[in-house]
Structures are given as structure tokens and as C-alpha cells.
Measured scan of single mutants.
Amino acid sequence: MSRESDVEAQQSHGSSACSQPHGSVTQSQGSSSQSQGISSSSTSTMPNSSQSSHSSSGTLSSLETVSTQELYSIPEDQEPEDQEPEEPTPAPWARLWALQDGFANLECVNDNYWFGRDKSCEYCFDEPLLKRTDKYRTYSKKHFRIFREVGPKNSYIAYIEDHSGNGTFVNTELVGKGKRRPLNNNSEIALSLSRNKVFVFFDLTVDDQSVYPKALRDEYIMSKTLGSGACGEVKLAFERKTCKKVAIKIISKRKFAIGSAREADPALNVETEIEILKKLNHPCIIKIKNFFDAEDYYIVLELMEGGELFDKVVGNKRLKEATCKLYFYQMLLAVQYLHENGIIHRDLKPENVLLSSQEEDCLIKITDFGHSKILGETSLMRTLCGTPTYLAPEVLVSVGTAGYNRAVDCWSLGVILFICLSGYPPFSEHRTQVSLKDQITSGKYNFIPEVWAEVSEKALDLVKKLLVVDPKARFTTEEALRHPWLQDEDMKRKFQDLLSEENESTALPQVL
């Protein structure tokens, strides 16, 4: 008996699950189920560990084997000379395990699969056993689809999209007709009724959600790893209520002995410091949205989908001078704002400069500016000194954290500008005749005249004003913003236009 009217009423009120309206889709043409990776026989039982391990490696599972009696060998002398080797079968990115008779397991190899009674669906509900069930008529011709799209860092995100009359449910929550939600590992998919569980979705590319604290899981769906560094790992996640993407940084307390840091400095109150950081608001710094204190720290951040500045300059790639100017102007505005709010970044580098898009002209935002507030000064500097390429001379020669101030950030900005303009770092371990530390503390950077011949004198002058060993003589952010190279009204107008595109209400910060 159909429950279409009941569920449609529920759909009209929406769902609290991570779902959002989605535009129309072009329906895929039908194809045989076997060619799409559906096993030839149905099963109602969950797999054992041996079955799972075989399939996850990209080899055929026991459900897909063919009797050897149906095959015969071709003698080598009868092999056609022009026969080309077969292409290897792509490894599946996800697996659906059937929970009921009449449904088959599915190895997801393609990027898009339609499910329903219509014969054009890649996964067609046409098993005779299924057709005899009382629920068969409640399934729509095109009930739902599972697909994946390219996300940040060229990774993939799996989604389920509801197109049914009676509802598609993920972990008992209604997706909603015309809406989608991301699928995470071990999600249970039910059709027409929330208790009519048909599939379990296994994402073969992500970790299980159960490793994360419950308070975090209640608000966010964790997904793929976006990156990792000395101070922690960053994962893509989704807000459950809105389906908006965020980035979540995970900082290990054990790695940084944060408990010991608190004992050594009783004034170090991470929760208080995070609340201060959350109040920071500038178009060129990453917004801190939320914070969870569990076995590790979880910092929920605004997501930038254009990648890191590092990706644009790695491998001796240089940027156009006009692009360097647009990016560097924004970096200076961001660091100036942090300094005005009493925050020294201490870890400025291309990896911590994020881009809003893949376009050459785009907004940038500074991230990882609050680590000293979370990890403690000593722990952070011990970590950073392991990779000193961007560290100021006074940091390398000081004991502990004494003896330096916000000028350290201006040195790091000078190193970043040098790399963007030239395509190579000013200080490098590859210069074996002088140690990296000695290069930095003496201010002897690697200047290649033929490379810098293409760079304007004004740009080079600003680099020199920032890479000054004496912090008292080094340019401040205010002085850098007043430098002739940055007195470019076309560049500032472009920045204002980019801000307006992102948010019509965002105004250009005042600069002296």
C-alpha cells in the first residue's frame, strides 16, 4: 500500500538533515546492470571481512566470479597478432551492500547512478522477487541517484539526491524531493519508509565518522582530508542543518603536550582565546566558526575552494607581477588587521594563504593565525623552527619566545613576496656552502639577476625593505602599504570589485 501522500506532506515541511535544493538533472540513458558494476546475484546478508577486503582492492568479489566451465583457453599460436591488451577495470570509489532480497550489490565505478523502476536507470528495480513485494509499487520510476562531484583539492564528494514520490531516507532522515545531501561511510539508505532499509553505503575513500566526538558529529558530517601540516590535519565537512561546506582543523593534544602547556602557563585558556579569535572579522582572514574541545581540538573554519598559494608557486613557478601585487596587498591588509588586534601570526607561508577560486584574479585569505593562542608560545615555536624557511632572523637566534615582536610577520611576508615574484625561495638548504640558518640570520638571500630583470624596481625595493635583518629597521605593514609599488588604483579597484562580488555589503578597509 502506498504512503505517498503521508511522505509528500513530510517532504513539504523539509528536513533537518544536511540537504539543499538542487537544479534539474539530465537523465542518464539506460545500460545493462552488469556493465555498471552490479553483481549478477542479489543478497540479503552483509559481507564478511574477506569479501570486503577483496573488493576494496579493486579485484572481483566472490559475488562477481564466473564459473571456469564457461571459459576456455586460447593457445598462444592462435592469439590474433593485432589484439590489444584489455584496459584494467577501474577501482570502485564506493560500494552499496544490499540489505534485502531482490536488490543486488553495487560497485560504484562510474560517477553517476540512477536507481528506480524505469529501465533507463543504471540500477533498475526489475528483479522478479522484488516485483512480488508489497513495497515495489511505492518505488518511483526514478527514485534517487548517487553521484560524486569534484571538491576541494581535486578530491571527490559523494551525494545522494531524492527524486521520489514516497521519499528517500539516509539514516532515517528524509532527504526531500529535489534535494541532495552528502553521503558518508556506513550510511543506511531506506526507500519509501524510513524503516525500509535497502542499502548500506560504503565510501571507500573516507574514514568512519565514529572516531570523532559526538558533539562534533551532531553538527557536522566529516568527509575527506584536505591537507595536513606540522600543526594538524584539515578535513572537509558539512553543516548538517545547511549542507554548507566547512573546513575542520584537528590539532592533536598529545603531539603538542597541550596539557603540560596549560600547567606551565595557567593563564592559557584555550576556550577564552578561541572566543576572541571567533570575533575577528576581516575579508582577508579565514573566519573561525566553531570550536570543540575533546581528546583533540577541532576548529571549524570557513572553507576556501581555490587551494593554497603554495600550489601556484611550487615547482619554480612565478606569478605575474600584477597578480603578485593583488595578492600581496590583501596579505598586508590581513596581517595589519591581526597586528591591530594584538595577534602575531608567526607562521606566514604560502600554505597559509588560501585562494577563493581558481581564477588568477581572486580574493585571498590568511589562515592559521591563532596557533600560539591554542598551542602555547613554546610549543608552537619548537614546531616552526623545524622548517625555518620563512622564519625571521630574530626568531632563530632567540631562546624560547623572548626578543621578537610583530616584525617577524613582515619578514615572512618579504619571503613570500620574493617567491611569488621570482619563482624560487630566497633562502634554501640546497645552497650547501652556507647553512639555512646562517643565510637567514645574515640576510644573504639568493639573488639571480636574469630572473629579477623581469621584475620592476619598485617591487624589488619593497622586497629589500622587508628582508632587513634588524627588526627595528624592517618595514611595518603600514609602511609597506604606503610603498610606491602598491599605489596602484587599478589594483585596488579590482580588489574592491572582487569584494563586491563576494558580498555587496563588504567595504574596502581604510588604508593610510
Results as ranks from 00 to 15, higher is better:
Ser2Asp: 13
Ser5Pro: 10
Asp6Met: 08
Ser12Pro: 09
Gly14Arg: 14
Ser15Phe: 11
Ser15Ile: 09
Gly23Trp: 05
Val25Tyr: 05
Val25Leu: 10
Ser28Tyr: 06
Gly30Trp: 13
Gly30Arg: 05
Gly37Asp: 09
Ser41Tyr: 09
Ser42Val: 09
Ser44Gly: 07
Met46Arg: 07
Met46Tyr: 09
Pro47Ser: 10
Asn48Gln: 09
Ser53Ala: 06
Ser55Tyr: 05
Gly58Glu: 08
Thr59Lys: 04
Leu60Arg: 02
Glu64Arg: 04
Glu64Lys: 01
Asp77Met: 10
Glu79Phe: 14
Glu81Gly: 11
Glu81Asp: 08
Gln83Asp: 03
Glu84Tyr: 13
Glu87His: 02
Pro88Phe: 04
Ala91Leu: 09
Ala91Gln: 15
Pro92Leu: 15
Pro92Asn: 14
Trp93Met: 02
Trp97Gly: 10
Gln100Trp: 15
Asp101Asn: 12
Asp101His: 13
Gly102His: 14
Gly102Arg: 13
Ala104Leu: 13
Leu106Val: 08
Asn110Arg: 06
Asp111Cys: 14
Asn112Thr: 08
Asn112His: 08
Trp114Met: 11
Trp114Leu: 08
Gly116Leu: 01
Asp118Gln: 13
Ser120Gln: 15
Cys121Thr: 14
Glu122Pro: 05
Asp126Ser: 09
Asp126Gln: 15
Leu129Cys: 03
Leu129Ser: 09
Leu130Val: 06
Asp134Trp: 14
Arg145Gly: 13
Val150Lys: 00
Val150Met: 04
Asn154Phe: 12
Asn154Asp: 01
Ser155Val: 09
Ile157Val: 04
Ile157Thr: 04
Ile157Ser: 02
Tyr159Pro: 00
Ile160Asp: 01
Ser164Lys: 15
Gly165Trp: 05
Gly165Pro: 00
Thr168Asp: 01
Glu173Trp: 13
Lys177Val: 04
Gly178Cys: 14
Leu183Lys: 11
Asn186His: 02
Asn186Gly: 02
Asn186Ser: 08
Ser187Thr: 04
Glu188Lys: 10
Ser192Glu: 00
Val198Pro: 01
Phe199Cys: 08
Phe201Ala: 01
Gln209Asp: 10
Ser210Gln: 00
Lys214Leu: 06
Lys214Met: 06
Arg217Gly: 09
Gly227Lys: 12
Leu236Gly: 04
Phe238His: 15
Lys241Thr: 10
Lys241Leu: 07
Lys245Glu: 08
Val246Phe: 11
Ala247Thr: 00
Lys249Asn: 15
Lys249Met: 01
Ile250Lys: 13
Ile250Cys: 04
Ile250Trp: 05
Lys253Arg: 09
Arg254Gly: 03
Lys255Glu: 04
Phe256Ala: 04
Ala261Met: 00
Arg262Ala: 11
Leu268Asp: 00
Asn269Phe: 15
Val270Ile: 13
Val270Tyr: 05
Glu271Met: 07
Thr272Leu: 06
